[in-house]
Design a protein around this nucleic acid. Structure first.
Length: 558
RNA sequence: UGGGAUGUAGCCAAGUGGUAAGGCAUCGGCCUUUGGAGCCGACAUCCGCAGGUUCGAAUCCUGCCAUCCCAGCCA
């Protein structure tokens, strides 16, 4: 499958800034961005927004984008995460070429810069404990107080910092702090810690270091080292920008521009790594790639395409306003993509048997079906038809309401690509459940149209009872019942108990050749893909990506 | 009188002094061998509120209100 339905790119304030910078030649005509994940969890749809922004904007203006792992905290990070992140960015369709960087690659240089800060009297070694630092930081409305170690001599600071690096002190015994302003209204400027001691092995540098630089200190310098032009990050870092600028200015080094935009929130889900990690660890879901998760890997397994996610990212725009995008927009994007690309199949999810009494007992006919009415090049296929078939249980009603135009006693419907049938009677078991529906067919309507031109309102899908494939189909609903799960004391309490339902379905025979990841529209039901986790050589398992729009559900008030 | 930011339709979002783009959702209608898709139409006398400047204000000024972020040796 291939296709592309991305809408034309829209304007946003970041593009406006870049366009202006290009006009004034601020960066010598360069546009160089970076996507800087911390490898401490899987990427989610919110990261996809950032990825599409960073790579997209560079692409649009002839620039390039680095992939940089912000790996300055060895206690939280792991290679499992760097591998998944690389896979996800690649899958989304972006290429960082050979520019795969790690903040940890810069540890040596960062250390040298720290020494320079010390020499300039702009940083000092502080012996205060974490608790004491917290207590002297002040509050939102009151200034902090200066550390008693703030005015150590440069020589002493140099000596101590070197000994911190050499491993002479235990975790937490000392920190290196920037000497800025304990009275600043911006808490980030109250002598922030820029190095801490952690005798922890790092997934890349091993045991080489026992001091690790903090985010604020590392990020701006990494951007500087990589000659980034526009450093795009989310709103919560707005308060950190003065520190970003301070470090680079004090060191007098290349100085990128940090620009903040609003992170994505999506209705009916949660979107923080911490919360997603909780869902995984507390076993509410099957893992980071559970199809109900808003992770890239979850969406991939669910059947979303990279094109649909890029289209979504384009449609939601980029601005500074806090936002919660309607899940319906994401669903719209995948439907629109798959409508044009996915071949159709008839699959009965909740089967009930129909017997066509006047159809010859042993006859089996081959009928022609269109693979995708939206794509003439997709061709046709043959479907087997016989006396006994399955239809959806809810495509029959004994006492139908007004405007119900599927099968009911005396009402004629079309079996898609087959014949018109009319229900004559039903057979029930002792508890009143329908076990068989008896019908007659009109042999003149083969293919699904009648020579006399009479109209039937309803068309339903079916499979031949003796010519079908058993498959498991996993039907997903939103993981959460409320559009804003975070309004609950415990967001876990809002989990939808019906977010996963597994049914045994009867599918058209040709589906047996489907491969993991293949996508189909099950006619009248939705889009489905072959699951990568539970499919075996014996049994195909499908995931429902999204339902089709169902205007009958609205009419019937469901 | 802590600091920073944001308020345009149910949800996103353009617009930057010349009289409110676009998308999703919703609601009508047409069409249809998927109650799908497609097509057509409706949907802000008004831009958080109140004043002011101007021939003219969502855009400029003043004041107010609301919401979000910040007190990790996390990122």
């Amino acid at each position: 499958m291939n296709g592309n339905n991305e809408s034309t790119t829209s304007e946003n304030f970041i593009k406006a800034i870049i366009r202006e910078d290009l006009k004034t030649n601020k960066w010598g005509g360069r546009v160089h961005t970076r996507f800087p994940p911390e490898p401490n969890g899987y990427l989610h749809i919110g990261h996809a927004k950032s990825i599409c922004l960073n790579f997209g904007v560079a692409q649009e203006f002839g620039g390039i984008t680095n992939l940089r792992f912000d790996d300055t905290n060895p206690t939280k990070e792991d290679v499992e995460y760097v591998d998944s992140i690389k896979e996800d960015v690649k899958w989304l369709g972006f290429d960082w070429a050979d520019r795969e960087y790690y903040a940890s690659d810069y540890f040596e240089q960062l250390y040298e810069y720290a020494i320079e800060l010390i020499k300039n009297g702009k940083a000092y070694v502080c012996d205060l404990s974490a608790e004491e630092i917290k207590n002297t930081r002040g509050t939102l409305t009151e200034p902090g107080t200066e550390s008693p170690y703030r005015n150590r001599s440069i020589e002493e600071n140099l000596d101590l910092f070197q000994r911190m690096k050499a491993g002479e002190f235990p975790d937490g015994a000392k920190t290196l702090r920037a000497k800025i302003d304990m009275k600043s209204g911006n808490l980030n400027m109250r002598d922030p810690v820029i190095y801490r001691i952690k005798h922890t092995e790092h997934h890349r540098t091993g045991n080489k270091w026992c001091i690790y630089p903090m985010y604020d200190y590392t990020h701006c310098l990494s951007d500087s080292i990589e000659r980034i032009t526009h450093s795009l990050c989310t709103l919560e870092f707005e308060d950190h920008r003065p520190l970003y600028d301070w470090v680079l200015d004090e060191l007098g080094v290349y100085h990128p521009q940090q620009i903040e935009f609003a992170r994505l929130n999506l209705s009916y889900t949660v979107m923080s790594k911490r919360r997603l990690l909780q869902l995984v660890e507390e076993k509410y879901v099957d893992g980071w790639d559970d199809p109900r998760m808003p992770t890239i890997s979850g969406l991939r397994r669910r059947g979303y395409t990279p094109e649909s996610i890029r289209d979504f990212a384009e449609r939601i725009g980029v601005a500074k306003r806090e936002n919660t995008v309607d899940l319906a927009l994401l669903e719209f994007c995948i439907r629109e993509d798959l409508n044009k690309r996915a071949n159709r199949a008839m699959v009965v999810l909740d089967p009930v048997k129909v017997i066509i009494d006047n159809y010859p007992d042993d006859l089996v006919e081959e009928l022609e079906a269109i693979n995708n009415p939206e794509d003439a090049s997709s061709g046709t296929r043959k479907v087997l038809f016989s006396k006994e078939i399955y239809i959806e249980r809810d495509d029959f009603m004994e006492n139908p309401p007004k405007k119900y135009f599927r099968l009911s006693p005396g009402q004629e419907v079309r079996l898609r690509y087959a014949y018109y049938i009319t229900c004559t009677n039903v057979v029930k078991d002792d508890s009143g459940n329908i076990t068989e529906i008896h019908c007659t067919y009109d042999p003149e309507t083969k293919g699904g149209s009648s020579p006399d031109g009479r109209r039937v309102k309803g068309t339903i899908h079916w499979v031949s009872a003796n010519h079908c494939l058993e498959t498991d189909v996993r039907l997903y609903e939103n993981l959460f019942l409320n559009e804003d799960p975070m309004q609950f004391e415990r967001f876990q309490d809002n989990i939808n108990p019906n977010s996963l339902q597994i049914v045994n379905a009867k599918a058209e025979l040709f589906l047996k050749n489907a491969k993991v990841g293949d996508k189909f529209q099950f006619e009248r039901k939705g889009y489905f893909c072959v699951d990568s986790k539970y499919t075996t050589s014996e049994k195909l398992v499908f995931n429902r990506t999204v339902t089709l729009k169902d205007s009958w559900a609205k009419v019937s008030g469901k």
